[in-house]
Design a protein around this nucleic acid. Structure first.
Lengths: 252, 252
DNA sequence: CACCTTCTATCATTCAGTGATAGTTACTAT
DNA sequence: ATAGTAACTATCACTGAATGATAGAAGGTG
């Protein structure tokens, strides 16, 4: 409690404020001041000052039940969607991809140990499981793997070091070693076909979006269900999705 | 430049960071470090530290052209949309309202001297002018007036004091005195019918959403165009929109 | 090769953030 | 009513983190 935040103590104030915001992001409902303090591991007084300041600015709102994120967040998000180069470039290409394949397509980018869905275009048969824009999910399941595959070995080892076993949606258990093997395969083939990893019955085919530096900060995928599509049928769309990924990469 | 930020100097660090974010929100493209420093009136070194920290956290991203908002913003926005009581309560009611009237309906909340569009449900004939979710607009034009009307006189006078004349979309000029008179009318009638204020040819009918405290932090409106609807026809929907506003107010 | 811009790194100073504590308000239970 | 509890606010001395002036590295341009 009394100990330093842990990161290394520099730029403390701002980091703490962002911790507070992200603590409210994770919350499933309004949080009390004391709950925020506990969750973010801050002194109550510090929490109070920070929260009040964010309230004043509209980043947090308060009601009788506690504090939650405020509407100003939406303004920022709007500005992001309108301005983001990747997002604006990708949307028409994804639209085309979804039109020609009939499947839902989406674009996500890496953010630390997670990926964030940045854009999505629905297919003709809407998926029962709607993956919402802005959603954060870990990298070790589904399409996130193609982003991991582009890490160099040092980063990868660091990531895998303290990674717990993952339980896939169909019950399989994925150990870090399993993941490592799969990433090696992805490094060779350049794509990933996921079956029931994040969601039971979901199939996805993912390709990285090449950046100038050779890395892949983004990826796109096509999603469908095992009921309507076989893995082979989905894999047959590899040329299409690859073309789209290339087109996006070329324009950023 | 060297002078204090202006607010009164407390909670400086965080305020400055938010200034940086909002400066990027207003920007129409990537900004260089020096531009951010100039826009937010900060020392370059301070700007650098702040920006780098926000980059590390994913709130800002950097490309060859400069800095812009980052994808983590989207995550926060997603959490807001999912959790926000007002937003989730209002959406189904707006859906019903749009279904029964055939018009686009929307919900916005106040944020300082502006309002922010929080939810929108499109009508049968989609408007050519799409008002995007998260968009910030001033309070002195269109539906924002019903929010202003709920301020007490002291707040109102302060607001009107340094308000410049506004130019409506159809060319009319609205002085603070005009606005004041209109707000008095709204206080009596409880609604506002706007014609070509923000957008030429647009008609909107706005009602406040009553809060527990008697105030109105939110409002909903119906939007259409002069081509398809007369003011009288729109005004005839007042009972409908009032019912919807009441229903939302009752559930928060 | 000199020039300019962008961004990064360093460091002494000092002032803003910190956190312990006390106070206020409001609600619940008895 | 009265005590008790929880949520939030306010105060203030201390100190260490943010500050900003300056110098430096990296990258491009005429």
């Amino acid at each position: 409690m009394g100990a330093p935040t842990g990161t290394g103590n520099q730029g403390r104030t701002l980091d703490r404020a962002l911790d507070v915001l992200e603590c409210l992001e994770r919350a499933r409902g309004p949080l009390r001041l004391s709950e925020i303090a506990r969750e973010s591991d801050l002194h109550l007084a510090t929490t109070q000052r920070t929260v009040n300041q964010l309230v004043r600015r509209g980043y947090i709102q308060q009601d009788g039940l506690g504090y939650s994120l405020g509407p100003v967040i939406l303004s920022l998000a709007h500005a992001f969607v309108v301005n983001d180069r990747l997002s604006t470039v990708a949307t028409p290409i994804l639209t085309e991809l979804s039109a020609s394949t009939g499947l839902t397509s989406s674009l996500f980018v890496r953010s630390g140990p997670e990926r964030i869905l940045v854009a999505r275009v629905d297919g003709v048969d809407p998926l029962r499981y709607q993956f919402p824009i802005g959603r954060r999910v870990p990298l070790d399941l589904g399409g996130g793997k193609v982003l991991l595959a582009h890490d160099d070995d040092a980063e990868l080892d660091a990531y895998l070091a303290d990674l717990p076993d993952a339980r896939l949606a169909d019950g399989r258990v994925q150990t870090p070693a399993d993941l490592r093997a799969e990433l090696d395969r992805i490094r060779e083939t350049g794509y990933h076909l996921a079956e029931s990893e994040r969601e039971l019955g979901a199939l996805s085919l993912t390709r990285p979006v090449p950046g100038h530096d050779g890395g892949a900060a983004a990826a796109i995928n096509l999603v469908t269900t095992a009921e309507t599509t076989t893995p082979e049928e989905l894999l047959a769309l590899l040329p299409e999705i690859s073309r789209a990924a290339g087109a996006i990469g070329a324009r950023i």
